[in-house]
């Protein structure tokens, strides 16, 4: 990677209970220069039949990314900051392995491009010391990008968690999810 001004003390904190489904992040994501006009962030209803609750999902930038492991074309890579980059356009063969294997349901396959695209934490911005687009526009701060001290001050009753359990698999990530204070792990199923 070229010279960067990536701020290693800043982190991503997500709190889906705060998501109001306004989709400002979706619009903002499409402004990111690394993915052009295609929005990568996901906002969806959790269970439309019973609740209006929406959830928001960015790439969690896993420590050992399943997406990169299952990619038959070696198209996904993790950099020295732990950012897992979107598919290398020359290599990706559009097989969707990553789309189906990511435990958080993050990568998107663009059928027309025959290419997978996903969040790379607005690398054009974060590598220049700025915050990702989505986190700068989220009105409820369901998406927050900043230091651990800032989030601890702002959310005294929450703990950032970056360990997840999916069945027999433990996944740790760079991105945090805000949980009730004292929680260390989120068991999904």
């Amino acid at each position: 990677m070229p010279e960067t001004n990536y701020q290693t003390n800043q982190e991503f904190f997500v709190d889906m209970q705060r998501c109001i489904g306004c989709k400002a992040c979706e619009m903002a994501c499409a402004e990111c220069e690394t993915n052009g006009h295609d929005s990568m962030i996901h906002v969806n209803y959790v269970d439309r039949a019973v609740t209006i609750q929406t959830t928001v999902q960015v790439c969690m930038h896993c420590d050992d990314p399943v997406c990169a492991n299952v990619c038959p074309a070696d198209a996904i890579s993790k950099d020295e900051f732990g950012v897992v980059h979107t598919a290398n356009t020359a290599r990706c063969i559009g097989c969707s392995n990553c789309v189906m294997a990511c435990p958080f349901g993050v990568p998107k396959k663009n059928e027309a491009y025959d290419l997978m695209m996903k969040c790379n934490m607005c690398y054009d911005r974060t590598s220049a010391g700025k915050k990702p687009m989505c986190a700068t526009v989220c009105p409820t701060q369901a998406l927050f990008y900043g230091t651990r001290e800032e989030i601890a001050r702002m959310r005294p009753n929450s703990s950032p968690v970056n360990n997840f359990i999916f069945g027999n698999e433990k996944v740790s990530t760079k991105v945090n999810i805000m949980m009730p204070k004292g929680t260390t792990v989120l068991r999904v199923d």
Binding site: H42, V46, T55, F104
Partner: peptide, 13 residues
């Protein structure tokens, strides 16, 4: 993928 995202939110709830 959508199901996975929803299940995560449900686990959070």
């Amino acid at each position: 993928p959508e199901g996975k995202r929803s299940r995560l939110a449900m686990a959070h709830l």
